[in-house]
Design a protein around this nucleic acid. Structure first.
Lengths: 152, 152
DNA sequence: ATCATTGCAAAGCTTTTGCAACATG
DNA sequence: CATGTTGCAAAAGCTTTGCAATGAT
């Protein structure tokens, strides 16, 4: 079991949840991928090593992990959310509008600094209590730029 | 008909689409609201003045308008996308994680400037052709802060 | 008059819920 | 062993598609 897996599984136990093989498998599927995966993709990945698992269990596990903020839930369009390892540590997104690929990047200090200041201003003006921020770029990845304008 | 409506409707005709009362109604529902509306909300709004309309037509119209970039499609979580007037051009979002309310704000010049520079760097490093960006803050709006921790 | 558009109904998806059987701590 | 968890099946969303009737240009 990878260290990142262990972080998550011990967190689960700390919160009083039981550690089932299914949960471990879902956790591993997420931590062992760099990409953002949809529930169905995770289900398929898990099914390879763990044939009996139910899609329902994947959904329930994802919901649980996201609520505990042990994984990151992202909505980029399409019908499904997608999930990725790593919590709220400020990584931001670069989303390909062609194939849906998502690349994370760390926000440079300069931006973070300005964003935090902006947060303060917005909070004062709007009355919101701001908890988090996300900077997202959309465009076309290298492959999709080369590809002839596909049906998408 | 509001000027913003006219912009959109003439754009539709320019693209060779017919100008039906249903389409006008959907356009008007969107331009006459400050909020981001879900397809169902738009359907209900339109139904008031236009009882016969089908939800299907609303979906089709939204899809069309979003493809032509005459309205802005936003995914914030929950199961539905939401739509708002204006293209995606540089307004950013403040999303309440309690009630889902979305407030737009214009990004200050300082941020835009830094973001554009970051875009260049990311583009070079990742090979993406970057088309747009979105800065999104999440938090709790004033009402939800006051509300006793609800079921959400 | 023509061809896009509408609305209905039905299908397709993703996601959630009810419940008996099961397995973890 | 007790309770949380699983998996099936079925329900509940939201969204799309097929098709005849309608209506804009």
């Amino acid at each position: 079991m990878k260290p990142s897996d262990r972080n998550i599984t011990t967190a689960l136990r700390r919160h009083g949840y039981k550690l089932t093989p299914q949960r471990c498998a879902v956790v591993h599927a997420i931590t062992s991928s760099q990409d953002h995966l949809t529930p169905t993709a995770i289900f398929e990945k898990v099914s390879q090593n763990h044939p009996g698992i139910g899609l329902v269990t994947v959904y329930r596990t994802l919901k649980l992990l996201a609520e505990l903020e042990l994984i990151c839930e992202l909505h980029t369009g399409g019908n499904c959310p997608s999930y990725t390892a790593g919590t709220s540590h400020h990584h931001h997104h670069l989303v390909c509008s062609g194939c849906g690929k998502v690349v994370d990047f760390a926000s440079p200090r300069l931006i973070e600094h300005n964003v935090v200041e902006l947060e303060g201003r917005l909070s004062r003006e709007s009355g919101f209590r701001i908890d988090d921020h996300l900077l997202e770029f959309t465009g076309l990845c290298q492959l999709c730029q080369k590809a002839p304008a596909s049906s998408v």
